[in-house]
Design a protein around this nucleic acid. Structure first.
Lengths: 116, 116
DNA sequence: TAAACCTTGACACAAGCTTGGTAAGGTTTG
DNA sequence: CAAACCTTACCAAGCTTGTGTCAAGGTTTA
């Protein structure tokens, strides 16, 4: 076998084996399988798993956000509808991005921030 | 006043007043205010509220998905990172979209579908 | 001033997500 | 065959989301 087992991959990527299965279930990774059904993680998978982690932490978003972004790529009608809805958003003078979106994209930190 | 109160807007859009406030808190709508602080919903707001409802129901996605799409429009570095991560996804032969994403984008229906 | 609105804030609760653990069973290898 | 892996399928704890309701208080208008 020229790939890693799920525990080895977990070790190297920082995800738990449990989470690797969870991520697969969500379609965010898709390792090969041995004939017996064992997952085999290749270098590509490892890289994407690490990058995914960086993405989530660096931008503070969730798995479902990444999943939705992927869905946007696939479903052009959804993409278009969403695009046109967002387009119709009235232009707010400025300084939109700070208060509003706390609590939607970063709600997790709300308590922490408020506790200072 | 040439706009509607929150209860009137709720009546006409199918959202509850509670939800209109919730949507505003999330930045998905942004009605004007009277000097005293009362929300004033114009025709544009009403239209977008109805369209939003159609979006959510028609494509079976959530408020946070729409919020994230909006965030994608604003944050180009997030957009690029996500784009390149998704780009690196290994090409799966076909038939990707059915099983995987149930449970991420449409997990709500899982129980229903399974119950048939 | 009293009725009928509106405001923000809090409490509450069901449903879903994230994550771990554990059980029952197959595979590989010494 | 036994140890040490792997698999799927459940149960569960804790947090987030979506939604209602209620309280305390300001505004408008008759």
């Amino acid at each position: 076998m020229d790939g890693l087992t799920i525990h080895q991959a977990a070790e190297l990527t920082g995800w738990s084996p449990r989470m690797l299965r969870y991520l697969e279930r969500g379609g965010l990774v898709d390792p090969e399988r041995t004939p017996a059904g064992y997952r085999v993680f290749g270098p590509g998978e490892l890289q994407r798993l690490r990058t995914l982690r960086e993405l989530l932490e660096g931008f503070d978003c969730g798995l479902s956000d990444v999943a939705f972004a992927a869905r946007l790529r696939r479903e052009s009608d959804l993409r278009r509808s969403l695009e046109s809805w967002l387009e119709s958003e009235p232009e707010r003078p400025q300084g939109v991005a700070s208060e509003d979106w706390l609590g939607w994209e970063q709600r997790k930190h709300q308590a922490l921030l408020a506790a200072t």
